[in-house]
């Protein structure tokens, strides 16, 4: 019986498309491209949703360079420097990947292996950096309070610079609360971590420190967050419902909770791509070492995983722009 498919599927060459090369592209390479196109649409769906939400809250969205200000092993605030370094690392890993493909065309097995190895290392550095970035974001840097109206209030000093609770909260807790553990309370009951400072304590410290001011999420004409007068600050603080330290899927000391949700989701989805990219690269790296492609006579497989790796870089370029710059 003659099959209707253009390519017979009962032969060994199924995965190479039986040698058919429409547009001069092999089956595997073409399918990698089509996968990349569909994945690009997925990512743009997420980023477009982020854009919609941001436009929805355009007058109160967190300002990125006030959120991502830390560099590992360095004290002080350096907005965006670390993400810039991460971006550079990913671009360099893309370069080593192209160099591996280039060496593959010349059938230089050792060079391909070394460049693949470098790509994997840079990839791991990038994922590690992202994990650090997440950790910093989750732990938070200053702390804030949330009002009954769901607004986030932060604290600034007389220069308008944001300060942490530890910088001005000096009094006792005032509410006598202690973290309930199995050791100091009922052994069969647990409670979620309580905030380091109590609401009363923060309000009392605010009253005791006339230089401290309250900052709201509202963005002014000068594209800065609004700083309230002392009296307005007292009025707003009276509505405090919750002390927020750091960010998670439910609260976010930097502002809108959904900002944190999108941050975790989009950078997480990208990080997952990087992770799978590293795993695929490792597999191909060992294939290169054992000489699979040397025997096959070409290194097209390196080119195909290279496409995926470059795509991950390409997506990061957009994530970088829309999360950290714009």
């Amino acid at each position: 019986m003659k099959s209707n498919s253009a390519v017979s599927s009962n032969k060994k060459e199924t995965w190479s498309g039986g040698g058919v090369k429409p547009f001069g592209a092999s089956y595997g390479k073409m399918m990698m491209w089509f996968f990349i196109v569909s994945d690009a649409l997925t990512f743009s769906g997420f980023l477009a949703a982020y854009g919609l939400t941001r436009f929805k809250f355009i007058d109160s969205w967190p300002i990125a360079d006030e959120v991502f200000t830390h560099v590992p092993f360095v004290h002080g605030e350096y907005p965006m420097i670390y993400v810039a370094i991460m971006t550079f690392i990913l671009i360099v890993s893309s370069v080593t990947m192209v160099l591996a493909v280039d060496a593959g065309h010349k059938m230089q097995k050792n060079k391909v292996a070394w460049y693949m190895f470098a790509t994997i290392i840079f990839g791991i550095i990038f994922v590690g950096s992202q994990a650090w970035e997440w950790n910093t974001f989750i732990k938070g840097s200053y702390g804030a309070v949330k009002t009954t109206e769901g607004k986030i209030l932060q604290f600034v000093n007389e220069d308008g610079k944001q300060i942490a609770f530890a910088d001005f909260v000096t009094t006792e807790r005032l509410d006598g609360r202690e973290q309930h553990t199995k050791k100091n309370g009922l052994w069969f009951v647990e409670e979620p971590t309580i905030a380091t400072y109590s609401i009363d304590q923060i309000i009392a410290s605010y009253n005791a420190h006339p230089e401290v001011q309250v900052r709201t999420e509202l963005i002014t004409d000068q594209k800065k967050k609004t700083i309230l007068s002392r009296e307005e600050g007292t009025a707003q603080l009276a509505k405090t419902r919750l002390v927020v330290e750091g960010a998670n899927l439910e609260v976010n000391e930097y502002g809108n909770t959904i900002f944190a949700d999108f941050f975790f989701f989009i950078t997480g989805f990208h990080g997952f791509h990087v992770l799978t990219g590293i795993l695929i690269n490792i597999i191909i790296f060992f294939n290169v070492i054992v000489g699979t492609y040397e025997k096959r006579g070409h290194y097209e497989m390196v080119e195909k995983v290279g496409l995926y790796w470059h795509f991950v870089d390409l997506v990061w370029v957009f994530v970088f722009t829309f999360f950290y710059l714009v």
């Binding site: 477009a48 929805k56 355009i58």
Partner: peptide
């Protein structure tokens, strides 16, 4: 490869951002 996503993403982004502005 190039024009398909450019068309679809342009379409999606235009609609969603307009909608976001309207919601605001």
């Amino acid at each position: 490869i190039v024009w398909t996503p450019i068309f679809l993403i342009g379409f999606l982004v235009t609609l969603l951002l307009t909608e976001g502005g309207y919601i605001f």
